[in-house]
């Protein structure tokens, strides 16, 4: 490298600095030009609307006068709002927990299989994630249908009475979570399987030599090695589940009596269907805190990764 420079030494220092400057200028302008469409798209259709939502939430119903925090204060005194907050949290936390649990268990089961068969099983188990949610939820809707329920048909064979899957509050809450878990668990399975494959075999061998049993291997080897991926997957999933719309919308549309509404579906029914756009915007903005927390952790993760490279 140094040798090459001394041999060639093609230009006097001043001229070389000129070309370097030119190159830098050309380089950064090209780079900016290449990234410009992305910057325009994000600022125009993501960042601007996000701030516009904050402005909208401060208008009155006719969107003529500025009312400040009145919409937010109104929501605070509204029982349905607190029910939606509670339901959103129950929905997101329990769904993510069970997705992670099922993903963890199934990934271990698949990992146990001989390598030849793994591909087939992995392919089969990821199907729920591939089918568009709107369409699979319609199938679930009918599996839960009070008159024709195919699940109740099977349960009846075991003498279990007809379950009102979507008709009663507690069962409806259970059903939306169940469908969400069904849809999201395969994603966890894939992520955890990828993580499992990256754990070096030597660690398990060492643990086996030290006399560790299966539980100890999971607790002291697998979990610490997978900690990062478990955390980041759960964080992603928490955001997506918190903001979920289609499953609740199609399955229950918020019913019975608004008891299964989450932020997104309630914002939709207030803002678009109820034609009260500022109120809908206010409701949807309550998703921001969870986003902020997630953003904090993810940025920290990115920065740490950046400095370690």
């Amino acid at each position: 490298m140094a040798n090459g420079i001394t041999v060639q030494a093609p230009a006097p220092p001043a001229a070389r600095r000129m070309t370097m400057q030119k190159l830098m200028r050309r380089r950064s302008t090209t780079a900016l030009a290449l990234a410009l469409p992305l910057i325009l798209l994000i600022s125009g259709l993501v960042i601007y609307p996000a701030f516009f939502a904050m402005y909208l939430s401060m208008l009155d119903r006719k969107m003529e006068t500025f009312t400040g925090m009145r919409n937010i204060l109104f929501l605070m005194h509204f029982d349905t709002f607190w029910m939606v907050v509670k339901q959103s949290c129950i929905f997101a936390l329990s769904a993510v927990f069970f997705k992670a649990l099922i993903g963890f268990v199934t990934s271990h089961l698949v990992h146990n299989l001989p390598p030849k068969g793994q591909r087939k099983w992995r392919g089969m188990l990821l199907v729920p994630w591939v089918i568009p949610t709107a369409m699979s939820t319609i199938a679930w809707f009918w599996l839960f249908d009070p008159a024709y329920s195919a699940i109740n048909w099977i349960l009846a064979k075991f003498g279990i009475g007809p379950v009102p899957w979507l008709g009663v509050t507690s069962w409806a809450r259970f059903s939306v979570i169940l469908v969400n878990v069904w849809y999201g668990a395969p994603f966890f399975l894939i992520m955890y399987l990828a993580a499992l494959k990256s754990v070096p075999d030597q660690l398990y061998e060492a643990a086996a030599i030290d006399g560790a049993n299966w539980w100890q291997k999971v607790w002291y080897v697998t979990l610490p090695m997978m900690r990062n991926i478990i955390a980041i997957t759960m964080l992603f999933s928490l955001i997506v589940t918190f903001a979920n719309f289609d499953i609740v919308r199609i399955l229950t549309a918020g019913g019975p009596v608004d008891s299964t509404h989450v932020f997104a579906t309630w914002a939709f029914s207030l803002g678009i269907q109820g034609n009260n756009i500022p109120m809908g915007a206010s409701v949807s903005l309550f998703m921001l805190p969870i986003l902020g927390v997630a953003a904090f952790f993810i940025l920290r993760d990115i920065n740490r990764r950046g400095s370690s490279v």
Binding site: A50, L56, F242, A267, G271, I272, A281, M287
Partner: peptide, 8 residues
């Protein structure tokens, strides 16, 4: 999420 942006 899209659920935050659809109203604006």
């Amino acid at each position: 999420p899209d659920t935050l942006l659809f109203i604006p």
